[in-house]
Design a binder for these strands. Sequence first.
DNA 1: CAACTCATGTAATGAGTTACATGATTGA
DNA 2: TCAATCATGTAACTCATTACATGAGTTG
Lengths: 185, 185
Amino acid sequence: MPSDLGHALLGLLARRPSTGYELARRMQRPVGWFWTAGHSQVYPELARLEAAGLVRHDVVPGRGPRATKRYAPTAAGTAALRQWVTAELAPQPVRDLEVLRLWSVWLVDPEAASDLVHRVRDGHAQRLAAYEADLATLDGVAAAHDPSAPEFASRLTLEGGLRTRRAAVEWCDWMLAELARAAPG
Amino acid sequence: MPSDLGHALLGLLARRPSTGYELARRMQRPVGWFWTAGHSQVYPELARLEAAGLVRHDVVPGRGPRATKRYAPTAAGTAALRQWVTAELAPQPVRDLEVLRLWSVWLVDPEAASDLVHRVRDGHAQRLAAYEADLATLDGVAAAHDPSAPEFASRLTLEGGLRTRRAAVEWCDWMLAELARAAPG
DNA sequence: CAACTCATGTAATGAGTTACATGATTGA
DNA sequence: TCAATCATGTAACTCATTACATGAGTTG
């Protein structure tokens, strides 16, 4: 049974066969919106997936110093991915460094606190804009409304990012108001 | 300079001196809402913080087989924490296994997809309830409105969790409607 | 007397990041 | 000709999880 990263790669390959290099790029975006990996993770994981019979590759005459390998999922790979999607999922621990910092924000003066919240807000607003842009390109596509098309799933996840980032931006505005109320001037 | 975990522990100790065991428990909740660690991470990190002069301990005649050590931040420790709170913060990569699964949900039939979304919704709703309960206990406390009190920061972070979880639950409801619309039956 | 909580640590494993290493083709 | 992109891999290191190990006091 592959790792989470392995399933991320299978998810990418189920949408479109790719080289390791392409997978590493696609892991930055769009998959990077909710899962990231560098190429130094991708290549060994591809080898493990291949050893498990979940992906296979053919060699295309390449442009680098080594042979260029194009990977695609096997029937077993697609089946494993399909099964994993609906498998039991333990509640996920949250890991948010920004919130961890805000939790100790009572130690600093209100001006420094406001500055921090502004920077946090900017980050969320930037992500929000990126999600909106991605969703806009999907808007015209008919497949985005067909539950068996990958574009449908892309639309679901983008909509989720949109809503949580929108909530985060509103939260930051609320915090700024709280800080201003508590310490005016 | 301590790790993120080190700053999490300093944040706990700045609120209340504790033993390693208590810190490990407090890392489950409330800090566990946004950062987690087990006791096997806590003890070595406390030793590192002490070696760096950021915490110190006194020995209280203990109940375990070894001496019970109660830790508190030093002046340097509190200063380091205060500085870290407002320090430069690189944009954080998101890591969300639930969204990663939903991204491949186009591979499964609409009934299985709805079931998955229901389970995701339950998880968010449970967390939302926990946040609401924690916020309710803070509601009566006057310190929760004083920006220099730790309860103020607790209120900020809980409010953030509340808003993002609320958005997530609404997102799940939206997905269920989308799935029902696309595949009625 | 069994189970649970308090209390502290180490060891092994797995996952993730950063750095090292190479080299062809394409476009400015 | 210089830089970027395509393309693949390994090595060192850090961080996190799980398992091992011990033992007193309290509650049912």
